[in-house]
Design a protein around this nucleic acid. Structure first.
Ligand SMILES: O=c1ccn([C@H]2C[C@H](O)[C@@H](COP(=O)(O)OP(=O)(O)OP(=O)(O)O)O2)c(=O)[nH]1
Ligand SMILES: [Mg+2]
Length: 789
DNA sequence: TCGCAGCCCGT
DNA sequence: ACGGGC
DNA sequence: GCGA
């Protein structure tokens, strides 16, 4: 490689430890960090895990080259970074604080002396290991960074650099390493040359993220447990082996950590190589484990604590438990779903993440009522409830036919009854009465009045944290965000002021970590973590993601290309590519990111519906989404269209006509995506519209479905999304599969690639929402009650 | 330790 | 297949 | 990050 020019090869080795990336991104960061993607194949084959670490990485082709001229800068930055780490680490150790951070700093080739000093200062266990540091001399530039995170309060270990097959492009500021899921059986290609063009540019830094931050851990543990990230830069490629060797010998400090996990590895390695097998071996550093332990216990604690209180009511509930869904009950993994299933035990059930499916106030209901299927007979109460918000006359609600039955009684439960709750229970469910003023239905309690929550300060902080994680392109962060969403929603629904960690911990959806954070907020009014993690990329990528059509990946690509503002994007800074849809997204940036009052939705719909009905008077066309849930403000307009088939006709082709008419009327202004086959009975359209020339542009979606699918389509399109996911998840655990076309039984999924179905199963329901609830053992909930986020 | 919904459209 | 979005 |  060297021969090819002034390229230095950079050999990267993942670790089982996580880098304190906050340090990487210290506000004044002049340091180097990396963003990279892990090949999705990496976790699938654990046969590599047991082998030699270096060999493993060689196979992974985790080597790339960089121009020599950038190497110096690289070292320079690394050097500064280390110093920073050292000082920070020292500073962060606050007396009395049980949390501390211990870092093994790298032996830096050019300035390794200092680095080493710093390192030793923090970690004395390094015994001899430093040997290789000395070996670093002029000819061999080598960087070694050993990082051991012993605690998470001082550093934010949300990433673990692990390396992927690096075929990447380099931007002006960020090295973008793109993973290429390549078949390992294939001969590896030569290390790719990665030109780090203008690496230094203001706050620019090279950022490498692992797609899945856990990836690195098992690897090290499987081998010698070098719990560290090692980066060696060497002039020639062939040194790799050496590097690896050194590494192995060197990492003593972390070795202990490695030991334990290794057993795990061996244990699981026999299992089929899959993602899960990797996961099995993924383990937190010892210290973290230690720290987690208490938390785990507390978890139990939490349950037990809650149990007593809930006990009384719960037992009976459990007993009353359930009606298994009459037919089609499949063996479910939900061993206990029976008991929990029913709303009866709404609170704190243990079966599954069911709390997402059972509103606390519904627990009294044992089962979905046998309902008059369909008969549009008088709008069901559910309908009425809904209508009270948006329509005046229940009678003519077009949705009436879809609603099964009304659960008037629920209302009683919802309002009145909570009086008897135990304090604990009350706190949990009294939400309705307190937190929001809205008592009955429509509370658009979600967020209507933006800050009407007594725990708003907590919510604000957690949301900041969520926003930070949303900016991170890793899988871990994706799930973390998912968890934050649910936790925040739960806190919002919690009507009482949270005053302690324990209290917070008792809320479903709030775990030990979040409870700790809440405690910190309560005590200090702030979260250190926010500071640590709030790096420049967060803001920039958030701006980009605000553009319709731009997600995490694109946002990072642009950031990598040097873009930092919308103006940069408009100017195509860094030669970034902007798709047609993104172009529209930029043009209407403000409008698209704005929410509209529901009256505006109504106004727009009032123009659309007549046009549609003129095309076909029998058409069913209604607004779904947040509007149907009764929300006061809507992010967009979601319109469902279908048509009865009893007269032997269908709505085939209606969308095409409707879109044409709406464009003619000037209601539709931009298309974002059009149906594959506009004449299919099932089609999706996305675009922009406006009520009139003086109105802002709004996002609008049309979903056209076959009459047979109306129930599930209604369910799907009404959301909210978290509710849907919870319901689908439960269906899944029960052996079913739920999508916008129906509820299926007997679906067989590919063993390793879930989501892939070997057998599509048989559809067992799709025409009404109610039957879906019933079959899944979920108490019926009106649209406005299906709010989980 | 494990999974976290399931699908459509554009590239 | 991936990215984005519902 | 959370629940099981
Ligand atoms: O990831 C998603 C997103 C949406 N939906 C369903 C539920 C949701 O209610 C409906 C409409 O989506 P939209 O994005 O419009 O959400 P919304 O609930 O209508 O909220 P908003 O007011 O932001 O439009 O599609 C999902 O099932 N999964
Ligand atoms: Mg919507």
């Amino acid at each position: 490689m060297r021969s090819s020019g002034p390229l230095t090869q950079v050999h990267m080795i993942a670790s089982d430890t996580e880098l304190p990336h906050s340090d990487f991104f210290s506000s004044d960061s002049s340091l180097l960090s990396f963003r990279l993607s892990i090949p999705s194949t990496l976790p699938k084959d654990n046969s590599n895990m047991s082998g030699d670490l270096d060999e493993f990485f060689r196979q992974q082709d985790l080597i790339f080259s960089m121009p020599d001229e950038t190497v110096d800068e690289y070292f320079e930055r690394i050097s500064k970074w280390e110093e920073k780490l050292a000082s920070r680490s020292a500073r962060s150790r606050r007396p009395g604080s049980s949390t501390h951070t211990v870092l093994d700093l790298p032996d830096l080739s050019t300035s390794h002396e200092q680095a080493k000093d710093a390192k030793l200062k923090h970690k004395t266990t390094h015994g001899d290991g430093t040997g290789d540091a000395q070996t670093d001399h002029q000819p061999t530039k080598r960087v070694r960074i050993d990082t051991t995170v012993h605690d998470r309060s001082g550093v934010i270990p949300s990433i673990t650099p692990a390396l992927g097959n690096t075929t990447g492009t380099a931007g002006s500021g960020v090295l973008q390493v793109k993973s290429t899921t390549q078949d390992r059986s294939r001969p590896q290609e030569d290390p790719r040359s990665v030109p780090l063009a203008s690496l230094a540019e203001g706050e620019d830094s090279i950022i490498l993220w692992s797609e899945n931050s856990r990836i690195g851990k098992p690897l090290n543990k499987a081998t010698h447990g070098s719990s560290s990230v090692q980066r060696s830069i060497k002039p020639a490629a062939q040194d790799r082996g050496v590097t690896g060797t050194n590494n192995t010998e060197k990492d003593k400090p972390s070795k202990e950590q490695a030991i334990r996990p290794r057993d795990t590895v061996l244990k699981t390695s026999s299992a089929p190589a899959t993602k899960s097998s990797v996961r099995n071996v993924a383990t937190l550093p010892t210290s973290n484990l230690a720290k987690e332990s208490p938390a785990t216990k507390q978890t139990r604690h939490k349950n037990s604590a809650t149990a007593p209180a809930a006990g009384p009511s719960r037992q009976p509930a459990a007993t009353a438990s359930r009606v298994k869904k009459a037919n089609n009950n499949r063996p479910s993994k939900y061993s206990m779903d029976e008991n929990s299933t029913d709303g009866s035990d709404g609170e704190r059930k243990r079966a599954a993440p069911d709390f997402l499916l059972y509103p606390p106030n519904k627990r009294q209901e044992n089962e979905t009522r046998p309902t008059p299927l369909f008969g549009g007979n008088g709008g069901s109460s559910s309908l009425n409830a809904f209508k009270s918000v948006r329509v005046t006359s229940a009678q003519d609600d077009p949705l009436a036919q879809f609603y099964e039955k009304a659960r008037a009684d629920r209302d009683a439960v919802w309002l009145g009854e909570d009086g008897q709750e135990s304090p604990l229970g009350a706190s949990e469910k009294s939400q309705d009465k307190k937190g929001k003023s809205s008592k009955r239905g429509f509370t658009c309690d979600e967020k209507g009045p933006p800050s009407k929550c007594v725990n708003q300060d907590i919510v604000d902080k957690l949301q900041e944290l969520q926003a930070i994680h949303e900016a991170r392109p890793t899988k871990d962060d994706k799930w973390r965000v998912y968890a934050y969403r649910k936790a925040i929603a739960a806190i919002r629904r919690y009507s009482k002021r949270i005053t302690s960690r324990d209290e917070a911990f008792k809320i479903s959806g709030v775990g030990s970590k979040t409870a700790d954070k809440i405690e910190e907020i309560l005590e200090t009014g702030d979260l250190r973590r926010i500071q640590y993690e709030n790096t420049p990329d967060v803001k920039a990528t958030a701006i980009f993601r605000g553009i319709y059509g731009v997600g995490q990946q694109i946002a990072w690509q642009w950031y990598a290309a040097g873009c930092r503002t919308l103006e940069d994007v408009k100017a195509r800074k860094g030669d970034i590519k902007v798709s047609a849809v993104q172009e529209i997204g930029i043009k209407y940036y403000a409008d698209i990111n704005d929410r509209m009052p529901r009256v505006e939705v109504q106004g727009i719909f009032d123009r659309i519906k007549p046009i549609a009905l003129k095309l076909d008077p029998v058409l069913f066309i209604e607004v779904m989404g947040s509007f149907r849930r009764g929300k006061a403000d809507c992010g967009d307009i979601d319109i469902l269209i279908t048509r009865p088939t009893d007269d032997g006709r269908t709505h085939r082709g209606i969308l095409r006509q409707l879109l044409r008419r709406l464009h003619q009327e000037g209601i539709l202004t931009e298309d974002l995506s059009v149906p594959d086959d506009p004449d299919d009975l099932e089609a999706v359209y996305r675009g922009l519209c406006r009520r009139d020339q003086n109105s802002r542009h709004r996002r609008i979606d049309f979903l056209v479905v076959p009459w047979k699918s109306r129930g599930v389509a209604l369910l799907y399109y009404t959301g909210d999304d978290i509710f849907n996911r919870a319901m689908r998840y439960k269906a899944n655990t029960m052996g079913y599969s739920l999508n916008q076309r129906g509820l299926y039984a007997g679906v067989v999924r590919d063993t390793h690639d879930r989501t892939k179905k070997t057998n599509t199963g048989n559809i067992i329901a799709s025409e009404t929402e109610e039957e879906i609830f019933r079959i899944l053992g979920i108490p019926w909930q009106e649209p406005h009650e299906r709010i989980r986020s």
